[in-house]
Design a protein around this nucleic acid. Structure first.
Lengths: 148, 148
DNA sequence: ATCAGTGCAAAAGCTTTGCAGCGGT
DNA sequence: ACCGCTGCAAAGCTTTTGCACTGAT
């Protein structure tokens, strides 16, 4: 996988970004990741390929990618940490298990017509929305914790 | 307003919470607030009524209210700070202007039937969702900032 | 009187920044 | 060779925690 690091040279150029070892590596890791990742997650994975990479570089690159609209940055539930994912080709949402934290991708977005209606009633121009669903998966349903 | 601080004594008891000056004050402020507020927002407002209240008390009370399901805690967009609001009586979402940050309450939730469908296809038991919509209001539409 | 609640200060966790040196074009 | 990118360490900001005191029942 490490030899693939330069695969994204053209991709980076297309987005007006200089190609560096660290940026290529991070794009590789983001492509490999199947779920949201924190900066720290990516840092530890990155270290396996490049022992000297620093966490601040991860943060700087993620901020850059976010500005260039290559990735999504968000926060899940009430977590303090931000999480990142490659911007999916199609608009998409997530269903997250509160037990085991597994994440299911949902390709269908039920909000298109709702947004149109809202635009009409509020006179807003709606550009985006954030939708995540939370529940318990088949395996975790039977172990739903009590409120404290 | 300050004299109203004890109005919530019964309310607190109902939720199994001891009534204190600080908790009453915070409930007053949360009721007065028309939008999401950060811990710091509430701290500054609280100081006007009680000069010696401390920020850690605000955090502790907010955490407590959140656990007791009296308030919602969430994060908007990519902001670092958490925001809080009294849990509205009816399930509700928000439309947020990216220009002036004004927040419009949306009473209708378009997701009920969608959740049912999802439960059937994924075998999840869905307990909650987070939906916020982002756009530009009538006044801000004409000043949409360019990407950097 | 008891024990939870609070204020203060310090610590912790996530993220950003200053600076000197490295590396891509 | 230039100037942006990176590593390191330090700082910044939000939130949490330890401890001694206060206050509600």
């Amino acid at each position: 996988m490490v030899e693939d690091n330069l695969d994204y040279k053209e991709y980076l150029k297309e987005h007006g970004l200089k190609s560096t070892k660290q940026r290529n590596l991070l794009l590789t890791l983001l492509h490999e990741a199947s779920t949201f990742a924190t900066a720290e997650d990516l840092y530890f994975k990155a270290k396996q390929a490049d022992d000297t990479i620093s966490l601040s570089t991860i943060y700087r690159i993620l901020e850059l990618f976010n500005k260039k609209n290559i990735i999504n940055k968000t926060t899940l539930l009430e977590e303090a940490k931000a999480v990142f994912e490659l911007k999916p080709i199609a608009h998409r949402h997530h269903l997250i298990c509160l037990g085991c934290k597994k994440i299911i991708d949902i390709d269908h977005c039920p909000l298109e017509s709702f947004e149109k209606k809202l635009e009409a009633t509020t006179d807003f121009s709606i550009v985006d929305h954030k939708l995540e669903l939370y529940g318990y998966c088949k395996e975790c349903k039977n172990n739903i914790p009590k409120k404290s």
